[in-house]
Amino acid sequence: MTEFLQDINWSPLWISLKTGAVATLIAFFLGIFCARKIMKLRPGARAVLDGILTMPLVLPPTVAGFLLLMLFSLRRPFGEFLFENFDFKVVQTWKGCVVAAAVIAFPLMYRNARAAFEQVDINLIYAGQTLGMSDFRIFWKVIIPAAAPGIASGTVLAFARAIGEYGATSMLAGNILGKTRTVSVAIAAETAAGNYDVAAFWVVVIVLISFLVVTLINIVSGRGMNGRRWI
């Protein structure tokens, strides 16, 4: 057993955690931003845009991976532009892992934030406006705290989804040990190579982490709820 653990290359775990953290951070702010903008739109435009923003959730991740590859490929205009001007390379790099995970995790964050915003009593916003508060202040001091439980659960789900991302990641970032091989990519690769024990090890690791994170944040956000929210 000790021998087995000594032989394990731990890099997929760190890459997964790092990717999950950064991707969640991106999805967090982008999700809240989009949810806020969408709430302001007219119902018709809202339905269409919401559909587009939710796409990564319902499409197979490989479709997202393909589209991202088309976008960021160095042989295509946008990817070439990023590389030539900012030395920014996504394909076959760790940045690719982050981009893929963020895109896939984004709808979970966005939809949870939006649902949480919709639950906020609209009179709270009107009250803030008649009291002379700025929209910025109303948003950060009234709406976000009132929507906190929903936003917290969106964040947790986004993180859980981001560390487990496989389809889009493998297409965009590939499978380079120590660079882009995340735990889920490792599980697929090891299984394909017949190394069932290593694959099983990573399965156990990812199950434990996911469970731990979800439970931990549930406890934390549950504590904040104590007699404070809603009526």
Partner: peptide, 28 residues
């Protein structure tokens, strides 16, 4: 609304649920 210098008492009062009474008053 914020430029009209009005006060609006809502039917359900619309107090900010995540703020204390003092913080609520400070918002006004």
């Amino acid at each position: 609304p914020r430029e009209r210098r009005i006060g609006y008492l809502f039917q359900n009062y619309a107090l900010f649920p995540t703020m204390t009474v003092k913080e609520n008053i400070r918002c006004g």
